[in-house]
Structures are given as structure tokens and as C-alpha cells.
Design a protein around this nucleic acid. Sequence first.
DNA 1: CGGCCGCTTGAGTAGTATCAATGTTCGTGG
DNA 2: CCACGAACATTGATACTACTCAAGCGGCCG
Lengths: 214, 214
Amino acid sequence: MYAQASAKIELPSYLPHQSPVPVFDGPATPVSFFTAGAEIYAQGEKAGALYQVEFGAVRIYRLLADGRRQISAFHLAGETFGFEADATHHFFAEAINATGVRVFRAPSGTDMSRQLLPLALKGLTRAQEHLLVLGRQNAIERVAAFLVEMSERQGGLRQVELPMSRNDIGDYLGLTIETVSRVFTRLKEKGVIRLLSLRSIEILKRDTLLAMGE
Amino acid sequence: MYAQASAKIELPSYLPHQSPVPVFDGPATPVSFFTAGAEIYAQGEKAGALYQVEFGAVRIYRLLADGRRQISAFHLAGETFGFEADATHHFFAEAINATGVRVFRAPSGTDMSRQLLPLALKGLTRAQEHLLVLGRQNAIERVAAFLVEMSERQGGLRQVELPMSRNDIGDYLGLTIETVSRVFTRLKEKGVIRLLSLRSIEILKRDTLLAMGE
DNA sequence: CGGCCGCTTGAGTAGTATCAATGTTCGTGG
DNA sequence: CCACGAACATTGATACTACTCAAGCGGCCG
């Protein structure tokens, strides 16, 4: 459907908060460009490569047979994804916006354990913390936790860029798009946040937000 | 509160389905015994050791300030846990029943990456799959997925031992104890499962259960 | 055998999903 | 640069699932 595009990519307005340091010492690999919605890899595909976001954002997700979707992670500029427990991808990866991804393929025989372990452990901790959000928090708490997380991942600034749609946020938080929208409205009414645009919010009461996200 | 007990441990009726192979080649370490409810480590404690379940079962969890609890994982005989992204434990670990745990401490300077990476990746995949359950499945689907998971981890047998209480199951699935109980009743009424005892079920219609758990 | 803890069952409610309509934004082409 | 259309987001009304509160049951241990 969507193919890789190598021309006419608009640069997003937000920049990497984490400098994209190569994952391992190897030959410089080219950057692949993906348009909004383009698939980077699919569940069931053969795995093996590592992917580092240069700019843009990526969603990692799984589907149920009836189409219900759970996004297990977003990856922003500087972050690495794509490692798997076996030779197969267990998830889908898609570009959310126009996105640049650097692909690394370790020469066969190379042991990447030392480089990969910290990334895997970081991901594991983040996933387990997200389990608490999905299992035990209500809609307001989930959205608050999400906004705090996005803020911290963007350097803790007041202004937070949300590269993803309300639909993506819902599928990340286990909520419907309508509920996400209503919570945003309530947070606005309470003066906790302000919407600069649909994809850009300003945090006015950080403490309140932190307390909500628990 | 609960201290390590070294005497009068009852052996549980279920056996390891996975032989407890030492995690790394090192001096044989003794087995620590924990009574039901005993803490193995706490959130905030200094991490560093690895733990392998010899017999019994362990729950890994986090708490919210108001006491809500999310169990992120159960570990059965043969499984290894306790590795962290940094030097601090981010979760609590408790024995569910009388449990034997072998503790490994790598000599300082040892690089365990090769051994740990597959474990971390396995845990990451399992956590991400659990996100789908918590985020997008209803009560019946969650319980069905749980029973299938427990069955598979015990060798795919018809009879499944549940070492944990309904409360633990609820906190793992993001449900209340009452809802878990009601779902068990419905599954019984539908002839999908049969309760041999509170902690032991027989799967009568595996296909139905698989379809429910998606 | 009695008491306690864990489990089950029931009634009522809160919170989120669903369905539906309206409003807004953004990208395209005139 | 503006107008249009499609996709995305918000708002409202209603339904339904799972939670809360409460009472009763049952197995297990002392």
C-alpha cells in the first residue's frame, strides 16, 4: 500500500532529544524514509535488523482478529527498536509521520548482547510500568500518565509535541478515541493543560498532572 | 514481617516443566526458602542478583499510592527473574507459596549479557503480549488468555495448576476478584472448564478457550 | 469441631464504550 | 490565496461491562 518514499518528506517540527548515536560500530548505513502510515515491518516477518529513529515517530502494535489494536510502544527520535526474542517479528512497526529510520544489520556471527541488553531491559521496564497503567488506572490517570511520559521523553519541557493521533493515543492507553477526547477537554477545563494545536499541548499544572498519573 | 524460613516447607503438588538449569557457570549457590507471602526483594532495593525458581511460584508487582496493585508477571519453577535496567529494583517480588529460589551473584566484572539477553527479550515479548490483554480484551477473554498461558507454561496439559489466589489472578488481569470468580463460574456453566479444586482446573474445551483468549 | 480466610453470589452503580451528529483541521487543487 | 473535501476530533445520548458494597458459603487449619 504505502511504499518507502525517498522524496518530498516534510521535516517534523520537533527534534531529537536524544542524539542518534549509532547502535554499534559498523559501516555507515543509509537512512530509510517512510511516509505517514508506512509499514516498517510486519508481525510474522523475519527479524534480524535493528532500527533507530532519526526523525519522526514509530508505533509498535499488535492486532486481534477482529481488528482491535494495542500499541505497545511509541518510539521517538534517537530511540532504537526491532530486536526480538527469536527470528520472527511478533509485532507490527509503522511510521506515524514522515519518518527517517537508520537500519543496522550486524554481520553474521557478531555478538550484540552487550549493546542490546540495556535496550531490552529499558523496554522491559517501560512495558511493565505500562501494565500498571492499563491494568489499574482509570481514563484520567492514563492520559495524565501518558502526557507526563511524553513530556519527560521530550526533556521535561512545558510544551509537549504529540506526533500521534487521538486514535493512536487511545490504542496505546486502552481507551476509545472519544474517551481520550473527553479527558483532554476535562484537563483543559481544569486548567491543567492548554491545547496549542491538536498535536501540541502546554502543561500548565505539572504537579496536578503528576499526582493524577500517580 | 515474613522472614525466610528454612524448615517445614511443604512441597507443592506441581513440578517444574522446565529443568532448572543454572543461569551461568559459577560456584553452586544454596537454595533460599520462602514461605507464602514472603518478600524476596522490594521496589527501591539495590538489585544485582539473579533468582531462579526451584519450586513454588513468585509474583512480580507494582503498587499505586492508594494500594492498587498490578502483578506484571508470575514465575514458575525453572524460570529466572530479578534482572533490572539499572542498579535498583523497580518492582516487588514475593513468594506466592512455599517457594525455593536459587540466588546467583555474578562475580563483579563478569559480563552476563549473553545469558541475560534472551531472558530479557522473552520477558519483553511476554509483557508486550500482556499489554494487549489488559488494553483491549474483556473479562472473559482475559481469563481465557490467562488459563491458556498457564496451561502452555505447564506443558499444555488438560489439567492446570493455579498456584495463586483469585486475588492474584485479578491483579494480574486488571480485574476484581469478584469478576474473576464470576468468569470462572460462567466458564464452568458453559462446560469449558471444570474445577478439580480451587487451585486446580481441567480444560474441557481447549478450542473454545483458545478462541476466547483470541 | 469451630473459626477464619478465601471464594462465590447478588443488587445496585460508576465509568467507559457505543452510536450518532456536529465541528475543526489540513492538504489539495483551482 | 482561497475553497473544497476528507480525515480527524469533539460533543451528546444511551447502553453495557465491570466495580462496589454486602451477604452467604465452603474448605482448611488449628
